[in-house]
Design a protein around this nucleic acid. Structure first.
Lengths: 175, 175
DNA sequence: TTTACTGCAAATATTTTGCAATATC
DNA sequence: GATATTGCAAAATATTTGCAGTAAA
């Protein structure tokens, strides 16, 4: 799997060649999106990316952002992740060494974990008939905060209401 | 990471204990969903699962299926995956040895790959402060069929229309 | 000059939420 | 008896699509 094979080439050239090969057009919108994506080091969503472009003075429609990011994923400059039920998250390939994610199933929080040897191990595997481009490894479980809440819930088998009062507390008070 | 820690316990008992601990109710709907999920060996979506339940003679609302599957994920009996832009896919934990997925970024096709040593390596990693439950490793790239199409597109730099005719073909024909 | 691309708005698809009726604890 | 759960329908989100105008090749 030749991960990040393109990162030593200028992204604009990679994209340009890709567009030419696929008989697609070099529009200012596409290059504005490319440039902005390449200058974003962190994860981003379509929505946050749209906002960023607006604040940079570019008005590009959501539909165009969707379609262009699909192209950028297709030519290997951008990765696309899907964690919980929320929207997809994107990240540039260049400058983002392969990492994986701890995803809290309870609250949806995502944490990045860098692990060079694991990334290498995963990247080294070849799949006959499948041209791998990148991987997305997500470990699902409970984050620290949600574990704390979990322990609290299990501590007692007494029934508690939303205010954390036991039923007997309530009954006594009513007398 | 204690993956599949519950598979040797009867799923009904696991779920029952979980519900009791969280002060949730043992409803017939929840156990119908549990039973049906546990007897489904393959991936399923909410939609396909709903259809399956109907065909088995259970009428349970989509909202209840959503909420119950969330509980089943939470107590480790079911895993939840998110591949492309389509709906989430679920699978029972028991009887589905850890595997990963080849996902075609072009057509969305998903193929399972079994790899015991890789699964073990991933499962062996501990994360301080994070209680891991399961992992989802997705390799994105092009499947065989989409690679074929890709090669065809790149073969020539002549412009072709949707019927794969070059512009000169069309021009000649028009004369 | 052909046709792909864009923006906008409408359409889809998926998941969540509000509420009244019901069933569990 | 108190309240969590259910089904239904409506709402909220995310993404895709249709179309008319525009621009790249």
């Amino acid at each position: 799997m030749s991960y990040d094979k393109n990162i030593r080439q200028c992204p604009r050239d990679v994209f340009s060649e890709y567009l030419a090969k696929h008989h697609k057009r070099r529009t200012p919108e596409r290059f504005a999106i490319l440039d902005s994506a390449m200058s974003t080091p962190d994860h981003f969503t379509i929505e946050s990316f749209h906002d960023k472009l607006e604040s940079e003075g570019f008005h590009v429609s959501l539909a165009t952002i969707y379609s262009t990011l699909e192209l950028l994923v297709d030519c290997g400059l951008v990765r696309r992740h899907r964690f919980g039920s929320d929207s997809a998250r994107y990240e540039r390939t260049a400058g983002s060494a392969n990492h994986h994610h701890l995803v809290c199933s309870r609250c949806g929080k995502v944490k990045e974990v860098r692990d060079a040897s694991l990334s290498e191990a995963i990247s080294a595997i070849r799949y006959p008939g499948f041209a791998a481009s990148y991987f997305s490894l997500n470990i699902y479980g409970l984050c620290r905060a949600c574990q704390k809440r979990e322990r609290k819930a299990g501590q007692t088998s007494r029934k508690v209401n939303k205010n954390n009062q036991t039923l007997s507390t309530i009954r006594n008070r009513k007398k």
